[in-house]
């Protein structure tokens, strides 16, 4: 696939924090409308890679682009077309869900009437209309995650970067979230789904990238990777890739 046709292109991206190489020479591409899995253990470099894509951390080597916008030179353009749900975050406790979505919409300079309509539609979509005017401090983990996803969608992003979005969710919450992500992909949204819950990655994604100790150790279609490495399950595939890397 040519670089210009990809929604996300990453070429030799690296990040060093002092003596620690957090991301080392990572390259991959994500096609438009694809749900791309990004798997690896905690600390493998997935979060740092996503943060670099949004300009929250500056790369020390390589380059990347989101929908053709360079992540260093056009950071604000990238953020305008992208939605992001971090792995670890909180919502402002004194705001209601509706107020928070309006607040985030204002950061995108979305007109108030449009922002209200989009906010209400997202709250309905995630089944939060009854809790829309409740303070966020009383929200459960699942409700918080839904508001987190709603804020990532308020700008109708064409690219969605999700960092461990199913962590902490109960089975029903996970199922609902994965369903929402499938719907979004069907609508043409490109999704990068970063997780160490491999069953979620397998359920949702056709292609994956696997990271281990800052390096990309595999990238391709899940089915092809499993065939190539003789792995019956995702867990087996990941362990095989990691062991091969270690040896």
């Amino acid at each position: 696939m040519s670089a210009s046709a990809s929604a996300i292109t990453v070429e030799g991206l690296g990040k060093r924090f002092g003596a620690v190489q957090a991301v080392d020479d990572v390259s991959f591409a994500v096609e438009p409308g694809e749900i791309f899995g990004f798997m690896g253990h905690n600390g493998a470099g997935k979060t740092t890679t996503l943060r670099m894509l949004l300009g929250l951390t500056q790369p020390t080597s390589g380059r990347a682009a989101v929908l053709g916008h360079d992540i260093v030179r056009a950071t604000l353009e990238v953020r305008r077309v992208a939605g992001y749900l971090p792995a670890s975050y909180a919502l402002p406790p004194d705001m209601t869900a509706r107020e928070f979505l309006q607040y985030v919409a204002a950061m995108f300079a979305i007109p108030p009437a449009t922002a209200r309509a989009r906010g209400d539609a997202l709250l309905r979509r995630f089944g939060l209309e009854d809790a829309a005017d409740r303070k966020l401090r009383g929200f459960s983990t699942g409700m918080t995650q839904k508001v987190g996803l709603a804020q990532a969608l308020i700008n109708e992003p064409r690219v969605l970067l999700l960092d461990e979005p199913t962590a902490g969710l109960d089975p029903l919450g996970r199922h609902e979230l994965l369903e929402h992500l499938r719907e979004l992909a069907q609508q043409g949204v490109t999704i990068v789904f970063s997780s160490h819950i491999l069953s979620d990655v397998e359920t949702l994604c056709r292609r994956v990238a696997a990271m281990h100790h800052a390096k990309l150790i595999a990238c391709g279609e899940i089915a092809a990777l499993r065939r190539e490495h003789g792995a019956a399950t995702m867990d087996e595939l990941y362990l095989t890739l990691v062991r091969r890397q270690a040896s």
């Binding site: 953020r79 670890s88 909180a90 995108f108």
Partner: peptide, 15 residues
Amino acid sequence: ERDTGVLAVLAAKPL
């Protein structure tokens, strides 16, 4: 906002 984790969400916006 940084200490509570709210900034992790807001910093990714075009501001």
